[in-house]
C-alpha cells in the first residue's frame, strides 16, 4: 500500500524551487490498546466538561487557557494564536548548509521522507546528489501542522530525508545535572581489561538482528487471556553489585573467549526469540 503524503509544498534553496511532498518514516508497531471498563469491557469515550457545572462543553466553545506567573489566566482563541504566528508559507526554506558530521544526532527529533511532485524530479535528484557528494545537509524551517520547525534536509539513499530538530535550549545542560565527582582515574589495568571486553563484544551493526520481542510477548499475553488462561505475574529479579571490578572484567573477557572469541554467533543464538504462539498473530497487531 503506497503511503500518503502528510504535507505538500516546496523546497526552496535560493532561487531553486522544488515542488515536494512529505511522508512519515516511522510506522510504529507497538500493540495498541483502547481504554475499556474492567468490569464489562465497555469502551470508554472522553467527554469534556465544565469543571464547575459538570456540563459537557461543545468543541466550538473550547479555548486555550494559560496561567501566567502573575496568577492571571489568559484565554486565547485560535485566531489570536494564528495572528501571533504571522503569515505561513508552505515552503521548506533552506537558510544554509552545514557538514552533516557536525550535527549530533541528539538534535534530530523526527524523520520524514521527502518525495518530488510532478515536475520537481530533476531538481530533486540534482540536490540529493549534490548533498551526497558534499557531505552537507540543508538547515531550514517550515510549518508542519501548526508549529514552525527547524529542519535538516539530507540525503538517504535515493531519497532526501527531513529531520525536525530540537532547539539547543531543549537539551539538558551538564550544569543542570547533579553528577557525583569521579576524580579517581581508573587503574590502567582495569581500563585495558574494559577495552578488551568491549572488543570481544564488538559487532557490525545489523538492525535486522533485533526483533521486537516485547510486541510478541504482549500478543502472547493477549492470546493467553483470550483462551481463558490465568496470566502469571512474576516478580522482577535484581542483579548484585560487583565488589571487585578487575576480577569481574577479567572473568567476563575469559567467558567471552571461551565462547569462541567473537560474540556474533553465540549472541545471535541467545537473541533468537523463543517460538511463541504469538508469531502468527503479529500481523494482526494494530498499527497507528
Amino acid at each position: 500500500m503506497a503511503p500518503r503524503s502528510i504535507w505538500n509544498g516546496t523546497l526552496a534553496v535560493g532561487e531553486v524551487i522544488v515542488p515536494v511532498k512529505l511522508f512519515s518514516v516511522v510506522q510504529q508497531h507497538r500493540v495498541q490498546f483502547r481504554e475499556v471498563r474492567l468490569s464489562d469491557g465497555a469502551k470508554i469515550k472522553h467527554q469534556r466538561v465544565n469543571s464547575e457545572s459538570g456540563e459537557e462543553v461543545p468543541s466550538a466553545e473550547i479555548r486555550k487557557g494559560y496561567e501566567r506567573e502573575d496568577g492571571r489566566q489568559i484565554v486565547l482563541t485560535d485566531e489570536e494564536i494564528a495572528a501571533a504566528y504571522g503569515p505561513r508559507n508552505k515552503v521548506i526554506e533552506i537558510e544554509h548548509f552545514t557538514p552533516a558530521a557536525q550535527i549530533d544526532p541528539i538534535f534530530y527529533e523526527k524523520p520524514y521522507i521527502l518525495g518530488a511532485q510532478a515536475g520537481g524530479e530533476r531538481a530533486y535528484s540534482v540536490l540529493r546528489d549534490a548533498l551526497e557528494r558534499s557531505g552537507k545537509v540543508g538547515i531550514g524551517r517550515f510549518v508542519l501542522r501548526t508549529r514552525e520547525q527547524l529542519v535538516a534536509v539530507g540525503p538517504h539513499g535515493d531519497a532526501l530525508r527531513v529531520y525536525t530538530m530540537r532547539f539547543a535550549d531543549e537539551l539538558v545542560r551538564s550544569s543542570d545535572l547533579d553528577v557525583p565527582s569521579m576524580t579517581r582515574e581508573p587503574a590502567a589495568k582495569e581500563l585495558e581489561m574494559a577495552e578488551r571486553l568491549i572488543d570481544t563484544l564488538a559487532a557490525e551493526w545489523d538492525p535486522q538482528r533485533y526483533e521486537d520481542r516485547h510486541r510478541d510477548a504482549v500478543m502472547a499475553v493477549i492470546e493467553s487471556k483470550a483462551a481463558g488462561r490465568k496470566v502469571e505475574v512474576a516478580a522482577p529479579k535484581e542483579p548484585e553489585p560487583v565488589p571487585d571490578l578487575l576480577a569481574a572484567l577479567t572473568q567476563s573477557v575469559d567467558q567471552r573467549k571461551a565462547r569462541g572469541g567473537k560474540t556474533t554467533s553465540a549472541a545471535k543464538a541467545r537473541r533468537k526469540p523463543a517460538a511463541k504462539p504469538a508469531a502468527a498473530a503479529k500481523t494482526k497487531s494494530k498499527t497507528s
Binding site: A42, K43, R48
Partner: peptide
Amino acid sequence: IHFHQVDGRTGDRVSNRRISELD
C-alpha cells in the same frame, strides 16, 4: 507552552471525563 482547556462562555476550566459508551 502548554495550554489548558477553558470553556469560552464562562472562563471555567474544562476537565476530561471518561464515560462508558455503553451506559
